[in-house]
Design a binder for these strands. Structure first.
Lengths: 154, 154
DNA sequence: TTTAATATTGAAAATAAATTTCAATTTGAA
DNA sequence: TTCAAATTGAAATTTATTTTCAATATTAAA
């Protein structure tokens, strides 16, 4: 069961991360590699606790502090990004080769509806290409108040 | 110096909030009204500390706990929303009658570029109207790695 | 391979935003 | 006006994240 969404193989990404670390004059440790590999297995979102527990479950002795520190490096390198927070907790996802998110979000009840709109997607892509930006994804979030919630406000 | 973006007068919004509070069987206090009025003066983003200091500066004795509690109610009512976090601190903005945000964001250096694209805006608006969603704004965020940052990765 | 300088680690302490507790006070329906 | 219930401020608590620090691991050079 492999993800067909990844255009870069994980091995390649791990190699690139090592180069990033080296280029910064830092040291490439087994902890950093192990954390990145575990993150690359995650299909959607993850938080620090989740990741830490997965590592523990595999018998790893990596500390939570190291998980936090490696996440910072991976964000800096552009491999992952924070996508949202819930109860003061950050959730992350792998940035590269991701499906774009297009959502309707009710700002009151937090209901989320997926948007499927090819015209919109094409236009965003066209516009993106005009800019000098690389490995790219996008989130379109339309905020509104859904019909259920309108009743309780007005 | 009044904002021409507001379609509803603040007086109207304050009245509506009172109704919302009543409808929930809660009590409408001077603290809640004072906090809402102060928030409605803010043109862009604010955090709790900022809001609390503004109130203090006016001689108000409202506690920080009440500011947090009222913000929760205002979010529930749909008047404000959390827009982002920085250093574990939440930033909010008034939801209604806002200008939409369209941004290019570099996931590495966090550089943000405003997008001005009428075609895109029109398409989003058209699509939004098809849905049964009311008082509406949207955020389009295109994430990428800017040309400066590409160098340090590969 | 050994050395040595320096970065990294884990564990514990510190930090700080947000939430909760609780006694005193305020609100609002009857 | 009364009074049950909600709200308040202040302080304590909670909890994710960051920092500290001594021990350890990494890496480039000898």
């Amino acid at each position: 069961m492999r993800s067909s969404l990844k255009t870069k193989e994980n091995i390649e990404l791990v190699k690139e991360f090592k180069e990033f670390i080296k280029k910064k004059g830092l040291k490439y440790t087994s902890e950093r590699e192990e954390i990145l590999k575990e993150i690359l297995k995650v299909k959607d979102h993850f938080d620090v606790e989740e990741l830490y527990m997965k590592l523990r479950g595999k018998g790893s002795k990596i500390s939570k502090a190291s998980v936090y520190r490696t996440i910072s490096l991976l964000i800096e390198a552009g491999y992952i990004q924070e996508v949202y927070r819930q109860n003061a907790r950050s959730y992350y996802e792998v940035t590269l080769d991701k499906i774009p998110h297009l959502h309707f979000i009710c700002i009151k009840c937090k209901k989320v509806e997926e948007i499927i709109e090819n015209e919109l997607i094409k236009l965003i892509q066209k516009h993106s290409k005009q800019k000098n930006y690389a490995p790219l994804t996008y989130h379109l979030e339309i905020f509104g108040i859904c019909s259920d919630c309108i009743k309780s406000i007005s």
